[in-house]
């Protein structure tokens, strides 16, 4: 049978890339799992004895864990809300015929090309700084006391910075979806007596559902692991006020040099990410069906 041979040959030939990919994924995962059951602290050299689930117990009962979990979810939900709502409104604006459309679109997309550390530093030093920041000047010019964003509303500030970065992505996807809406459907709704708001509510928003789903899924993947913005602005503080899971894992492994604990945190983060993924696919995955 030629087909059997062909299939065997095909398997043989794709095996290097499959093995490479699996190795790339499985070896680090296996080592993380392995380290997570060892007492392995770089500040205490010597034996690394097997301790079972001790690391997990400490990690999950750490008060910082609950705070980090809540912060992680708040960050994801907050940024998603801002980018989806803001993105829809911006897309609506950019979809209108106006002067110099190309320039406006480039301006709107620009933040996406700024790397996270840079944009976070710009926001921290040029806008949110309580002495020299533009917001501080604005507050002072109105006779108000400057507001120290990163100290008094750290999580809100980080949500704001991350939203600024992700707004262009949401806008871009939603704008292309809006442009693919059939003109005749809008005209039909117009003939049917729907005003501008009803048309938006009954025709445009359902049409955007699929694109919004894509935005939510892709952004969630990246937002669960926000790190650079926290590192360069608040360092997770004050206290744990802006620590998310990623930052907590970083703090355990690289600030406290506890490899075992950090690995356990990593495994917990993987499990939580999967729970979020399953929940999301249940909730909005049906939008992706044709």
């Amino acid at each position: 049978m030629a087909t059997t041979h062909a299939r065997a040959a095909a398997r043989l030939m794709i095996s290097p890339s499959v093995i490479l990919l699996l190795g790339w994924m499985l070896i680090p995962l296996g080592m993380t799992l392995y380290f997570s059951v060892l007492r392995y602290n770089l500040l205490m050299p010597g034996d690394n004895p097997f301790v079972g689930i001790e690391n997990y117990q400490y990690f999950l009962t750490d008060p910082a864990f609950t705070a980090a979990l809540i912060n992680t979810l708040a960050l994801v939900v907050g940024v998603l809300a801002v980018t989806i709502i803001g993105g829809t409104l911006l897309a609506l604006l950019l979809d209108q015929p106006m002067w110099a459309t190309g320039i406006w679109r480039i301006l709107v997309i620009a933040p996406f090309f700024v790397m996270p550390t840079v944009s976070a530093l710009v926001w921290k030093n040029m806008f949110m700084n309580p002495v020299n920041g533009l917001f501080a000047h604005l507050f002072k010019s109105l006779g108000l006391a400057p507001f120290d964003f990163l100290a008094q509303a750290p999580l809100f500030s980080i949500i704001w910075i991350v939203s600024w970065q992700w707004l262009p992505f949401a806008t871009l996807i939603l704008l292309t979806a809006m442009q693919s809406l059939d003109r005749e459907q809008i005209e039909a709704a117009e003939m049917d007596g729907a005003g501008a708001l009803s048309r938006f509510r009954h025709i445009t928003i359902p049409h955007l559902g699929r694109a919004a789903t894509v935005v939510v899924l892709i952004e969630t993947i990246f937002l669960l692991s926000v790190f650079a913005e926290i590192l360069v602005t608040t360092n997770g503080g004050p206290g744990n006020a802006s620590t998310n899971l990623t930052y907590l894992v970083y703090a355990e492994s690289l600030l406290r040099f506890d490899v075992g604990m950090g690995s356990a945190g990593g495994v917990v983060a993987i499990i939580l990410a999967n729970i979020v993924a399953i929940f999301l696919m249940r909730a909005i995955g049906k939008n992706l069906d044709a």
Binding site: A189, D192, G193, A194
Partner: peptide, 25 residues
């Protein structure tokens, strides 16, 4: 009332809701 070349039905609504839409408005 107009019938379009592409029919311009609302794809996310059932037939019943499509027909009801102008009356709902």
């Amino acid at each position: 009332a107009m019938v379009f070349q592409s029919y311009a039905l609302y794809p996310h609504m059932s037939v019943r809701k499509n027909i009801a839409f102008p009356m709902k408005m």
